[in-house]
């Protein structure tokens, strides 16, 4: 029984030891499948991923809540914890205002979706390989 309890704790420690330094150094990119280059401000990025309007024809897609790049995006761009964001989306959904962006499990799936969908916009870590046709709209170096 003891070893069963210890195992997940050790895994968790290992996860943080391996991912935190990487997270601290990685840049966050907002990328999209668009024809013309666009430069977004932090406020515009926040609006796009929180269901707001943009003057560009962009459709946001996101990562699932467990993803570490999403955690980085929440902290650096949205400025809210995951629970506050989930509360916000509950309010938007059940008041009929907005729906949250479609979610994907990992960044590879996001990039593949972007390649196939014109106007799709997503956030990814700078470690992720961008494919042809995907343009960087915003870079966070925090």
């Amino acid at each position: 029984m003891k070893s069963l309890i210890r195992q997940p704790i050790n895994k968790l420690l290992l996860f943080y030891m391996l991912t935190l330094p990487a997270l601290a150094n990685a840049s966050l990119l907002v990328v999209a499948n668009v024809d013309k280059p666009i430069s977004l401000s932090k406020s515009e990025v926040k609006a796009i991923f929180m269901g707001g309007a943009t003057s560009y024809d962009l459709n946001a897609v996101a990562l699932t809540a467990e993803n570490k790049t999403r955690a980085m995006f929440n902290a650096r761009i949205i400025g809210m914890t995951e629970s506050r964001i989930q509360s916000y989306w509950a309010q938007m959904r059940f008041s009929g205002r907005q729906k949250p962006p479609r979610e994907f499990d990992n960044e590879e799936q996001l990039i593949n979706y972007l390649v196939k969908h014109k106007g799709a916009v997503a956030y990814v870590s700078s470690d992720v390989e961008l494919k042809a046709g995907i343009v960087i709209l915003y870079r966070s170096e925090d």
Partner: peptide, 29 residues
């Protein structure tokens, strides 16, 4: 469009921030 939306029918009035989701306890602290 992305900027405009319209609703027609029975709705709840957004008097205050949480009035129209007052039953959705998950939406507020």
């Amino acid at each position: 469009t992305q900027d405009w939306s319209f609703k027609l029918g029975r709705q709840r009035i957004p008097f205050f921030t949480y009035s129209d989701v007052i039953d959705v306890g998950f939406a507020y602290p």
